[in-house]
Design a protein around this nucleic acid. Structure first.
Lengths: 199, 199, 199, 199
DNA sequence: AATGAATGAGGGTTCATTCAT
DNA sequence: AATGAATGAACCCTCATTCAT
């Protein structure tokens, strides 16, 4: 059975594919992967159900594309903020990274959890998330290693990443009325500063 | 004829219900809520498909029960560890809490994420998780407030909780080969100590 | 994915399964395998679409069962006619076999071709048909070998079988107005007699 | 806007149409009519899916053309072998016809069954096959009637045709390891000779 | 209280056919 | 004449839920 999946080259095609991915991204974000059906995706994208399978092998394939876009367009871009680290001071970089992470989480609300929860039933999703965290840690370790001579830099960076992630998530959902997020922002900044500044 | 959901009072009934919940717990943990079907739950529980609806209104109702059990049997018990805080020193408590959190995560591997990912499509699930975190923060703040006079105790406790959670999760999955988890354990302990010890 | 296919033991179950197979048999016979859909089978059987998959893994699985029934209930029974061969004379046996083959073809009109045409896309179907012909040849050779000492008995029997088949098919469809089937019957009988009688 | 089906007159057009039919012929032969889709036909033909509908009304229309080609290019040509019948002896003609029939079956393997199985769901296909057999019988009867004065010539010719067909099919698939096809060839030849030679 | 057969709406996917270019 | 993207009805199959026993 010779599945022919379109590799869109023409402008029209590219746009159709983008419409489908965008619709899927939005729906996965709103109600999750399993609560979204392909008819809904097509409808939201303004196309027929059939053409979805002209661009994607199956529903999972759409999800993988959404995941890639999420990773490469939302997640990885934060890494460039570390380019300033050589010239500037750490505190500014941390502030900018925190701001960016919070913003990314807010804009992309639920998609992270929607995709990450698939980790347990889809090993490729798991692999991509692990790889992403590995990459981020490696890049940041690399940037810092010249400047900050601390023991266990890998562990420190990874932990910092986890904390940033956790905090951004906390901010995005903002469920706890008793939390002053500005205060928490300060606490997080201190923690991360401490992770690298002293030894 | 309105379906009557059994409130089991007899021993036999209680056990049947427990078998169903246990089976659901295990399956949700292994493959997630949406990849589990009720026939499978019944089979794993060793009961008929029909009787499941004698104890639960619907599939979601089983999930809510699983969630309650997870929260009350796995999550909340960690709170008692803070009872020692008056007599002992903080460092020991932190160590024990971290150990307990890691163990809880390891034993209950995927269930947290499986349930938490439903947050976005089920507001009651969301409410329960928010409530849980509120409760934990409140209790710990209460315990600590007599002894540790720091500003923003609520934010500190909540942040500490997030970090513990994030770290326990990290340990449970242990996907990153380059991480020495003992080292990270020490870093986390320091961070939390710092959050309360100094001012 | 734990497909549970019912092995019906209760009377009710056995009847349901039979209704499904009978409906499928009729429909495959009338319009062929590919022109029959599972909803139609269920409808003709007077059951819901879902239950079909309680008894069969998939549509092909129904077809395999239909094939087995065809082979074992229609085809193989002809073999018992050869039991008389020891005591009686060959000519009578041939007559009875021809009559039986024609009747079987008439009663089961198109099913043979409907199933046999799947030979090319389903190797198990192919295997079953080959096996069937092998078995028939073997059995008949066995019966005859004591009595008729001719060379190349295997080839003779197999050829006879082909001719009987071909003729029964011809009779069943009776498309050719210029053919006197009684005459043809006599010709076929002579041919087969000649295959064994003389040397 | 009524679809206009091209009656190709230009060379280019004729070739395109031929490519489509050839592709369809091959695919029907390999996997059958229902397992072949139009996209596949177009791809194999090296044309676009759309243009297929420039030359054919629908998928069935392609099949009818394939059928016509099969009948006229593969089947009917065997008839010319009977032209020799006046001058030569019958035995030689039979040998040549058998050889030709076997070769035709081998070269065109599955197409006969693929097309013939459509008989039951498409009356035009049925008609064409009946017509073909009628024609063959008529022609052969005509050729023979001058020379061989036997009773029931129609039945004899038709039966001979069936046997040849059946045997050619047997040879083409050669599924039965215990058959010596040269021996069978001889048996078939004798049978047919006997059908006409004596009376 | 329990069984497991039965229901039927809904999901993912295919494919003959049409249409804009 | 030709392309290949697009359509949407129809197909196979699943599964939460109900029902007869």
């Amino acid at each position: 059975m010779p599945e022919i999946i379109r590799k869109p080259v023409q402008k029209r095609s590219i746009e159709t594919k983008k419409k489908i991915v965008d619709a899927a991204y939005a729906l996965f974000s709103e109600v999750g992967y399993f609560n979204t059906n392909t008819a809904e995706i097509a409808k939201r994208a303004g196309v027929s159900t059939g053409i979805v399978y002209g661009y994607f092998k199956d529903k999972r394939d759409i999800m993988i594309e959404v995941l890639d876009i999420y990773i490469n367009s939302v997640y990885r871009p934060i890494l460039v903020l570390f380019d300033d680290i050589d010239g500037g001071n750490l505190d500014d970089v941390i502030t900018r990274v925190l701001d960016a992470a919070i913003k990314a989480h807010q804009d992309n609300a639920n998609i992270h959890e929607a995709l990450h929860s698939l980790t347990h039933s889809d090993s490729e999703v798991a692999r991509k998330f692990v790889e992403l965290e590995n990459d981020i840690t490696m890049v940041v370790v690399d940037k810092l290693s010249g400047k900050y001579r601390v023991d266990n830099l890998g562990e420190r960076v990874h932990l910092a990443m986890n904390i940033v992630q956790s905090f951004a998530h906390e901010c995005a959902f903002d469920h706890h009325s008793y939390i002053d997020y500005d205060v928490m922002f300060g606490l997080v900044k201190n923690i991360i500063n401490d992770l690298f500044d002293k030894n």
